[in-house]
Amino acid sequence: MNNFQKNKLIDHSFKILGMLFTFLGILILAILIYNIVKVGYTRINWTFLTSLPSRKPENAGIYTAIIGTLDLMLLTVLFAIPVGVGAGIYLEEYAKKSKLSSLLEINISNLAGVPSIIYGLLGLGVFVRFFNFGGSILSGSLTLSLLILPIIIVATREAIKAVPHSLKEASFALGASKWQTIKNVVLPSSFGGILTGIILSLSRAIGETAPLIVVGAMAYVPFVPQSIFDTFSVLPMQIFNWTTRPQQGFAIAAAGAIIVLLLITFVMNGIAVYFRNRWQKKLQ
């Protein structure tokens, strides 16, 4: 075999390896989903969704976890969106290239890399203890808000950056002030991108477990929270709790809850991708 043939062979082998690895990733995804559905599908029914947790695995449901997740997300949206979008606007439109903005930039990029469990410790120290909110929905959602803030800020900045400069100039030239330009031109044009970022960040928040464990979300909450100062459980907490139990019945329940959680996650990601594509098309 001469040199040329040898090179050709290496080239071709690598191509096949690359293909294999790419499909391996997708194959693992398929195995994961298949196995979980195989174990958990028997639990997917109305009773499971509307039952309270129980000491007996076959009676246990995810009602409180779903309500807890919904409450938590609602509050998180309320805190994180205005602050995240506002911070993104500030960095992109007001603070360009100042000392403060480069400090903010380094800081945000660092926050994005802080492990989620550290946010849990922050929430424990500040919200649970210092402000004395306890292991409540309020503490949990504030903690998650801080956790997803960098994602929303980065997405907002990217989306605003994509707005053509000529549109802003046109608005200024017509006598619009900065805020009028942001409100009437920049935000409408970047809406799709910002929305995509928000949905992706929420899909991340919905699956978070570790920071909530630290903040004190309880795995066993036999009642539905009545106020934002009540303790709560969420879907991933419920899954974690059932996974750590030795009985096979709880593993089945956990798989059932995972199916629900994955469905929510996939749907949210799907919506986000849809909005992103539509927005990118519109931008061109």
Partner: peptide, 27 residues
Amino acid sequence: KEVGMVFQKPNPFPKSIFENVAYGLKI
């Protein structure tokens, strides 16, 4: 508002024709 400007490349807002012309008045 006293000194208007038209740019090199047409840069209408991604809004309706009416909204484009009314923009300066609305603000």
